[in-house]
């Protein structure tokens, strides 16, 4: 008997088309970034780094890039802390309002960022809190925390509680059980959540437009502002940089934990 092939030629073609469709624009924008010309064209005869240089000659772009990095890193980290605490409560305890709390924690996924942006703008104005990086980050935490919570909850529900019980009977206090057993066992969920949160915060535009001030413009907002006036290959260079940052984060996590384990679930 011949073995069945899991991927027939049609399936293979389909996969190739899907991957090509997803990757093609990214590849094109990265190539365009190396053009020596003044318009968005593919470099044909020679490659140039002039548009990358141009990015770094725009201090506002550099500042926005750093803003975005900071906001994303801090929002993702705080979201992880909140999500682990909330996840433990939701997973371990049956209390009144548990379902409501779960829905509340996940609602930012359902609310359009546009609405959230307008609402936060009003709120911050009432609080007199506009224009600060702190409040911008707070907005981002609201948006990204649900992603982390999802992954943390999935990791917690797959956790073998008897390992924690074993640690307790071996003499571990609750804090030690949490730190040495629970956290390491859900670490793939935590890091995966952090990564998703970071990426989502890093390219969040719709909400940020409303709640950034001139001093706290994030990179996507800066690009948007710039692109409304002119489109030149510098946009491609910035895009290429953004792709590079995201890819670097992915690679790093893959090296440390194995990405398929994080994104597909516990291995």
């Amino acid at each position: 008997m011949s073995r069945m092939h899991r991927n027939g030629p049609i399936a293979l073609l389909f996969h190739t088309l899907v991957v090509g469709f997803v990757l093609a624009p990214l590849v094109v924008i990265c190539l365009v970034a190396f053009t020596p010309a003044n318009t968005l064209t593919l470099p044909t005869t020679q490659v140039s780094l002039r548009w990358f240089a141009a990015v770094f000659e725009h201090p506002d772009f550099v500042a926005s890039f750093l803003n975005s990095l900071w906001v994303a890193a801090i929002a993702a980290t705080i979201a992880v802390v909140l999500a682990v605490a909330a996840g433990l409560a939701l997973d371990r305890y049956d209390f009144r309002g548990r379902a409501a709390l779960n829905a509340l924690f996940l609602s930012p996924l359902m609310i359009p960022h546009l609405v959230l942006g307008v609402a936060l703008l009003r709120l911050f104005a009432l609080l007199g809190a506009t224009g600060s990086l702190v409040w911008l980050t707070a907005g981002h935490i609201v948006v990204v925390a649900p992603y982390v919570l999802r992954l943390v909850l999935a990791a917690l529900s797959g956790l073998d509680r008897s390992a924690e019980q074993a640690a307790v009977t071996l003499g571990a206090s609750s804090w030690i059980v949490f730190r040495r057993i629970t956290v390491p066992m859900i670490l793939p969920g935590i890091t995966g959540g952090w990564l998703l949160a970071f990426i989502n915060s890093f390219d969040e535009l719709t909400m940020s437009i409303f709640i950034t001030s001139p001093a706290t413009v994030t990179l996507p907002v800066r690009m948007y502002m710039y692109a409304t006036e002119s489109i030149d290959p510098m946009m491609a260079a910035v895009s290429a940089l953004m792709i590079a940052v995201t890819a670097a984060a992915m690679l790093l996590l893959d090296r440390i934990f194995g990405l398929d384990k994080i994104l597909v679930g516990q291995g």
Partner: peptide, 11 residues
């Protein structure tokens, strides 16, 4: 205690 699932610490 030895648990039915062994409950070893996987990490």
């Amino acid at each position: 205690i030895v648990f039915q699932s062994y409950a070893l610490f996987p990490h």
